[in-house]
Amino acid sequence: MRRAYFKTSWIAALLLAPQLLIIFVFFYWPSAQAVYWAFTLEQPWGGGNTWVGFDNFRNILSDPYYWSSVRVSLIYAVAATALAMGMSLILAMFVDRQLAGYKAYRVALIWPYAIAAPAVGLAFRFIFNPNAGIFSYVNTVIPGLWDPTQIGWQAVVTIILAGAWKHVAYSFIFFLAALQSIPRSLTEAAAMDGARPLRRMVDLQLPLLTPTVFFLFVINITDSFTDSFGIVDTLTGGGPFRATDLMVYKIYSDGFRGFDYSGAAAQSIILMVLVMALTFVQFRYVERRVHYT
């Protein structure tokens, strides 16, 4: 097999340099800085820091509220991912089967991805508002039933729904593309053998989709951990009483609002390690069940 390659390696290096530089400046440098801060106590206005070893980590890990933050982050990641992927798969299948109006859906379903997280948060804040929003009708039937500003689990539900809604679009595009790349002859053959749509989906389409499912699973989980900030910030502000204090939001509120840069840096390191570990597990164990054609 013929392979294209550069005769002189400096051209390759030159072409790679901009990308490497960007990764270095925007990832490795800040990460290294965060690691350093995590082991010190940094004065917010500069002017020196003290080495404290693992003290920051010890403080964080012995804080029961930190663990509840980890727990709610996991719940959010799993629930939002499952919901977003489930919904987008169903929608993608409808569009793929060209049910009535599928052309309109195809366009409309991509829109949410273009909306910034804070805007999503604001929209959902109105929808879920116990006094004025759409959900306030629930309260006119049974007063006091719905109030995410007072009832923790309802606040968690609202951020999960908002987060999932935002992610439906992204997964939808990938699912639709994957479904459309399944050869028609396969589905038609199955149909001729008497398999109904549901059976075709379970036995034929889903197995062929596994690479996409796996890809989306990794992306969605990672995104849920790192990209949920905007939604939490506008929708609940981490409350009521820390019920929706996701890890990434806690980093923000401790670090930027509370000037505890070192504590926030240590939390960032923990979050980074957690996401890396999850991705590792996914590739090591889940990917085994994925069949690439």
Binding site: D254, F259, D260
Partner: peptide, 18 residues
């Protein structure tokens, strides 16, 4: 760390009120 102290008070009082 007064901003943090205020936040702790706020969260705890909200929990008590709930």
């Amino acid at each position: 760390s007064f901003i943090q102290i205020r936040a702790e008070w706020q969260a705890e009082v909200e929990a008590a009120l709930a």
